[in-house]
Design a protein around this nucleic acid. Structure first.
Lengths: 206, 206
DNA sequence: ACCTGAACACCGTTCAAGT
DNA sequence: ACCTGAACACCGTTCAAGT
């Protein structure tokens, strides 16, 4: 894929695409700025004319990857919230599974998946599903935290999520069970199960 | 803490203690082999006479940290499984919160928290709680995955889990809500909620 | 056996210079 | 504006040498 002769100048989009290609092929641990540059047939430092840093590049890469589920409305017509949440979480998992190590890196970054739009969308989704505002916020965080945790755990399994593991269980079974657990837990909370927080959130002491 | 004059030779234990001290103080991102050596008043390469690699050191550090919850039986007398699981997960969260970045690193390592003993203990715990074997395995993974995900997400919040965030919610509220969600989800599954896996696990086709 | 000093093979990134 | 070449300030780790 290395271009021996470039016919035009670089673009941000080309750089992000090159990074995504390398990420799919070799995973984050092999992705260096030097590798991205060499994939484009250019000197390492050329890349810095278009991006600020490696973190910047990986944020752009994630923006590209997450476009399918970042834009679409969460609550589809004719679906209940449980089905919507299930397919949403599974599509994140399937999407990030193609980019080994990326999810585990992103989970540590501040403000990933809590962009203003993303956050508002998620809270709105759970409010529409009948959760009060604070619980909607917590429910959204709970669901995202689980799926990103699962993706991080899967990171060390390499590129083949189909490889069988203990008792014949595969990665897909673990994530299916976990997503179902999250949904059932949230259903119980929505139906009135008590969750006692230490912080008083809605009460103004009078 | 740097010793200007050493009176005896290094030990593995001293090295691990130095690493834990630095981890508590500055987090994993500042922990280099050179920093550990300098904390002990010794040349960087001296450490390699006692440990194989940085990964080795961090595994030893985690073994030390996890001793309190790694040894103790999960199911305490007179407690039901939900209370036991809650205090188990919270103690992992509280324990790792003191070592910023460590949990997020460990989540990617193979075979962390799935040592043969740890795995057997966890599966046994859920079997005693009434889960069939395969579900016990999945339940154990689900609970650990969530709490490690939560710890990873918390990593970027810095050393102060008490700092207030959106809507006055604090880190403790997020983990409390999530742990309760996990427990309620598992309760629903234990009480018979269906989780359809793609893999046939117990059936030998006849 | 225990530790040092120098070096290797990398990183991300800065800076001055070329066109 | 776009890119190069050299260098800086780090890493983890290897290796030969000292005591």
């Amino acid at each position: 894929m290395t271009r021996s002769a470039r016919t035009h100048s670089l673009t941000r989009e080309e750089i992000v695409e090159a990074a995504l290609r390398l990420l799919r092929r070799d995973g984050l641990s092999k992705l260096t700025m030097r590798a991205v540059a060499s994939e484009m047939g250019v000197t390492p430092m050329a890349v810095y004319h278009y991006i600020d840093s490696k973190e910047d590049l990986l944020r752009l890469a994630y923006a590209e990857i997450s476009a399918p589920w970042g834009q679409a409305p969460l609550l589809l017509a004719g679906q209940d919230w449980e089905d919507s949440l299930r397919s949403f979480l599974m599509s994140i998992w399937e999407g990030l599974a193609q980019y080994p190590g990326l999810g585990a890196y992103l989970i540590e970054l501040p403000n990933i998946n809590v962009t203003p739009q993303g956050l508002a969308l998620g809270i709105r989704f759970f409010e529409d599903a009948g959760f009060p505002p604070v619980q909607a916020r917590l429910a959204w965080s709970f669901a995202l935290t689980y799926i990103h945790g699962r993706i991080s755990v899967d990171a060390h399994l390499g590129h083949k999520p189909e490889a069988p593991r203990l008792e014949g269980l595969r990665a897909h079974d673990y994530v299916t069970f976990g997503v179902e657990g999250v949904i059932l837990g949230l259903r119980a909370i929505q139906e009135g199960a008590d969750v006692v927080l230490t912080t008083r959130t809605r009460r103004s002491r009078g």
